[in-house]
């Protein structure tokens, strides 16, 4: 039996060699298969030594992690998280307390403000009352004075009038007595003067 060994280059066959099959010269392409069969087990078969080392290392890792490393790390993490949570809770408490204080302060402030407003109102009312009182007093005094002044003025006017009418009466009597030669009756003169003065003042 013969086998063809073909050398190919760029699509051209450069040489064909025929070898008999019993010669163990095999082309490179088929060399793989025979070499694999010769040198080792199936490439996907597990090998005992690798299995043993892999299993050993993994089991060591698992046991060390399970027994020793992970619990310690986790404890540390939990502790820190607990600390942080406690801190946050503390901060929340402080914040709540501060908020309470602010509320209380505001309440007190409001009370004080209300009190102050009441005081101011009372003071204002008192002042108003006092002012009204004083105003009324002053008004009363002014009114009394005005009354007095009016009365005085009335009196003065009446006096002046009586003086004037007396003078006018005297003058009229004298003039009449000069013109007529006889002095008229005093009451008649008086009435006439009054009537004239009444008309003049009107």
């Amino acid at each position: 039996m013969l086998r063809a060994v073909v050398t190919q280059s760029g699509g051209h066959v450069t040489g064909v060699r025929l070898v008999s099959a019993d010669v163990s010269v095999v082309p490179a392409a088929e060399g793989e298969a025979t070499e694999v069969e010769g040198t080792g087990p199936n490439p996907i078969a597990p090998e005992t030594k690798e299995l043993a080392w892999g299993a050993g290392s993994f089991l060591v890792l698992l046991i060390v992690m399970r027994v020793f490393l992970f619990p310690r790390l986790k404890k540390g993490m939990d502790q820190r998280y607990a600390n942080i949570r406690a801190d946050i809770e503390g901060a929340d408490a402080v914040k709540a307390a501060a908020r309470n204080d602010v509320a209380e302060y505001e309440k007190a402030l409001a009370a004080v403000r209300v009190e102050a407003a009441a005081k101011i109102d009372a003071a204002r009312a008192k002042l108003d009352a006092e002012r009204a009182e004083k105003l009324r007093e002053v008004n009363a005094r002014i009114a009394a004075r005005r009354n007095d002044a009016e009365a005085e003025a009335q009196a003065a006017r009446a006096a002046a009038r009586s003086q004037i009418s007396a003078a006018v009466g005297t003058v009229a009597t004298k003039a009449t007595s000069i013109a007529v030669g006889k002095s008229p009756d005093a009451s008649v003169v008086q009435r006439a003067v009054d009537a004239v003065m009444e008309g003049a003042s009107r």
């Binding site: 030594k49 690798e50 290392s57 060591v60 890792l61 992690m65 790390l73 540390g76 993490m77």
Partner: peptide, 30 residues
């Protein structure tokens, strides 16, 4: 005999993992 590259890698994997966590646990956790 009985120890090749795969074994080295497997052992290194375990050692690196343990080393990382060992270094981690030795730090101050707070």
């Amino acid at each position: 005999p009985g120890f090749n590259k795969i074994s080295i890698i497997a052992i290194l994997a375990a050692v690196i993992a343990i080393g990382l966590f060992l270094a981690a646990t030795r730090q101050d956790h707070n």
